[in-house]
Structure formats: C-alpha cells, structure tokens
C-alpha cells in the first residue's frame, strides 16, 4: 500500500458520462515518473471531469476505457484507496468543512496515508491517538512546510477552506500535497485565484516536490500563466472530451497567441 516507487499513470480510451451525458469521449494519455504534462483546453471541454474521474468522484460514470497506475486498474477503487496508491488531485474548488481545523485534517490525512491507523488496528493499540502521527513530530513537519509556502502558522487553526481566499485555498492544496507526498499529482486550474506572488510560491512548491519525489505531474489549465513557472515537457490540447493534439512546450505559446479557434478548424471537432 505504501507508495514507495515512482508510478506511471495510464489513461486508455476513457469514456465518462455525467447525468446521462457523455463528457469524456475517449481520453488517452500517459504520465511517467518525473514528467510534467500540461492539459490545455477551453472551458467546458471536460478537463475537470477528467480530474474528478481520475480521483474517483462517485458522480462520474465510466462507460469505457481504463485508468492504470503502474499497471493496476484504479477504476474499482474508492478515492482514499487511490490516494493511498499515490494519486493526488489539487482541486479547483476545494470544499469547506466547518469545525475541522486545517491542522486536524492534515494530521488525520497524513496519518491515514502513512498507515498509522492500519498499524494501530493490527496491533490492537487502543490508545487515544495511536492512529495518529505523534503530535510533536507532525507539528514540526507541518511548520517546516508552511514556512516553505510562506503561510502563517495561524492558518492551521482555521477551519478547512472555510472563508479561505482563492489564493489561500490553493496554497492549502499544495501544503496537503507536500505532506501526503504523492507519486502522481493532478493540478486542476491551480493558477485560478492566485496573484503573481502566490503563483510563484505555489509553483516553486510544486517544482520542489516534483524534484524530491520524482512525481509525475498533470497540469490542467486554460492559461499559459502557470506554465511559465511549472514547465511541461508535454502539452496536450483537450477539446470536446478528448486529447486532440499533443506536442512539446512550443504549443503553449501557440495557444496563448492564437487561442483555441484554430483547434476546431484544424482538428475538425
């Protein structure tokens, strides 16, 4: 269960329906360890459907295709099982959970990911916090990470995403990524709501984690902005529910200069 190895994410001809309507129409994409892929497309092309589907949101109905992590199918797994295999989704709109502090949440999540709960169950240790990372140890770890993300410690005592600004939510997402140490991370419109300073800090955080963990990255965005800081080797144009064109980083500039209109003309979608 521990995700000690680098992971490869393979999406093969994925078809997904939402409320009876087909949104993903045959997505194929492979992200290998250490690679950075940008998935660019206009609003409504199905980008977020892809990210939620990969993470296992129950609303999305898979009607065909396959998603594999190191050859193992993810499709029958619950979101927490996917997370424990090394998949992470930095969400565009993280929901708030009133009454649960960011610190409580982070400690519970990191403990679950590192198998503390499982270990306590197996050993029959029923002490109150046996299923959690020891408080002092975790506090040190968190403090180090929030320092790197230039966040205030007081942030940890706020309720999860409640009343967070757009920028605060995105930083909190990256903080989670730093503590959960995924092998494949999907960033869903992480640049939205970020000012230029926050964008730089968040991007630096992602780049650092990628270097540390050998993480494969799938960056979903419809602007070039974020890609000035997180440099993709592979760029895919997502249009009408599938990848219509893949190329190198030069594609980013073409999209930025010419928009998406030529895509429709060229690929007839």
């Amino acid at each position: 269960m521990e995700q000690t190895l680098a992971q490869t994410l393979e999406i093969r001809d994925l078809h997904v329906r939402v409320e009876g309507k087909e949104i993903l129409k045959g997505v194929t994409l492979t992200v290998r360890p250490g690679e950075t892929h940008a998935l660019m497309g206009p609003n409504g092309s199905g980008k977020s459907t892809l990210s939620y589907t990969l993470m296992g949101h129950p609303k999305y109905e898979i009607v065909g295709g396959e998603v594999l992590l190191n050859g193992e199918s993810l499709l029958a797994l619950s979101p927490d099982e996917r997370a424990r295999r090394g998949l992470f989704l930095a969400m565009q709109y993280p929901v708030s959970v009133p009454g649960v502090t960011l610190y409580t949440f982070l400690r519970a999540a990191a403990s679950a990911m590192r198998g503390y709960g499982e270990a306590a169950r197996r050993s029959g240790d029923q002490r109150l916090h046996a299923h959690l990372i020891p408080a002092r140890e975790f506090r040190q770890e968190v403090n180090a990470e929030i320092g790197k993300l230039k966040m205030d410690q007081a942030f940890l005592n706020r309720y999860l995403n409640e009343g967070f600004s757009g920028g605060e939510k995105k930083r909190a997402e990256i903080l989670q990524m730093a503590l959960l140490k995924p092998r494949i991370a999907i960033l869903d419109e992480t640049d939205s709501g970020l000012d230029i300073d926050a964008l730089r800090i968040v991007s630096e955080g992602v780049n650092r984690l990628q270097a540390e963990l050998g993480m494969g990255l799938l960056v979903i965005t419809h602007y070039q902005r974020l890609l000035n800081y997180i440099r993709p080797e592979h760029v895919h144009i997502f249009y009408n529910g599938r990848v219509v064109h893949s190329a190198g980083p030069e594609l980013v500039e073409k999209l930025e200069a010419q928009g998406y209109d030529w895509v429709q003309a060229e690929f007839g979608v």
């Binding site: 939620y52 619950s78 927490d80 996917r82 997370a83 959970v97 949440f105 519970a108 999540a109 959960l180």
Partner: peptide, 12 residues
C-alpha cells in the same frame, strides 16, 4: 470526496 481523496476512509 474531498476528505477521501486525501486518504481518509469513508468512515473516517
């Protein structure tokens, strides 16, 4: 979904 995507079981 949000909490589970961070590794917590449905019960947790």
């Amino acid at each position: 979904f949000y909490l589970m995507s961070r590794g917590l079981s449905e019960k947790e």
